[in-house]
């Protein structure tokens, strides 16, 4: 079983990366600690640190070894403890993602039904009935790693990944669900697709959501999919 660490564990990633781990488990409490510390670091970046990146249970610090070193940065993190008390995470926003399930948009919906023993209708109801926490973003621009999928939907990955998954596809891999924001290769079982553009690099704010926000899937029919697709 995984655990939550009292003191972060530091790992070296080459000459300019430091990883601080707050647990060895995917857990909301650990993830919120990671986000809180990231917020504190972003408010006042330690000298020589150019970027911090939060993930499930770790924070990466990218530093300039000419200006600072791991000892100094570990101490900085330790001293941050008192500041964290007064710090709050911003209220998370919930983003609705319209999804057209099944048929050409979700070619594996029948397979997921067969594997789980549920009807396609039940799968859609269960999948769109939960709120999903965005633990982290990675893999491709805006790809959300979500927590909170109903265990009944658990389905293994495709045996052979697709070389091209169209942007907007919604899939399941084991006990996780996610959305592909850009065309990319991928091995998740596709059950539907959103017409929303999740990543717009040319915009001032290119993303619809950030780590810490929540996602809700809203079933839409083909007509609504087409209508929304036109607007974008």
């Amino acid at each position: 079983m995984g655990q939550i660490f009292k003191k972060p564990r530091m790992r070296l990633m080459g000459d300019s990366g430091l990883l601080f781990e707050y647990g060895d488990v995917i857990d909301l409490e650990v993830n919120q600690k990671v986000k809180l510390v990231t917020k504190a670091l972003n408010q006042e970046m330690p000298l020589g640190v150019s970027e911090v990146m939060p993930t499930y249970r770790s924070i990466l610090m990218i530093y300039d070894p000419i200006q600072t070193n791991p000892d100094v940065l570990a101490r900085h993190l330790d001293n941050l403890k008192n500041q964290l008390e007064g710090l709050k995470l911003p209220p998370s926003k919930t983003v609705d993602i319209p999804v057209c399930y099944g048929e050409k948009h979700g070619p594996e919906l029948p397979f997921v039904a067969e594997h789980t023993g549920l009807s396609e209708k039940e799968i859609i109801k269960i999948h769109s009935g939960s709120e999903y926490q965005i633990f982290m973003i990675g893999f491709t621009p805006g790809f959300p790693f979500l927590g909170g999928m109903d265990d009944r939907l658990t389905t293994p990955r495709l045996k052979t990944p697709r070389t091209l998954v169209p942007a907007g596809s919604v899939g399941i891999a084991n006990n996780q669900t996610g959305i592909y924001p850009v065309d990319s290769p991928g091995g998740w079982q596709l059950i539907g697709r959103t017409p929303l553009r999740l990543f717009s690099p040319e915009k001032k704010n290119p993303f619809l959501y950030a780590a810490g926000d929540k996602i809700r899937f809203k079933p839409v029919d083909q007509a609504e999919f087409d209508r929304l697709n036109q607007i974008k």
Binding site: M13, G14, S16, G17, L19, D24, V25, I26, M53, T55, Y56, R57, S58, L60, I62, M136, G138, F145
Partner: peptide, 10 residues
């Protein structure tokens, strides 16, 4: 491992 940040050179 649990997915984590990665940098060039890893």
């Amino acid at each position: 491992i649990i997915s984590e940040p990665i940098l060039p050179g890893a």
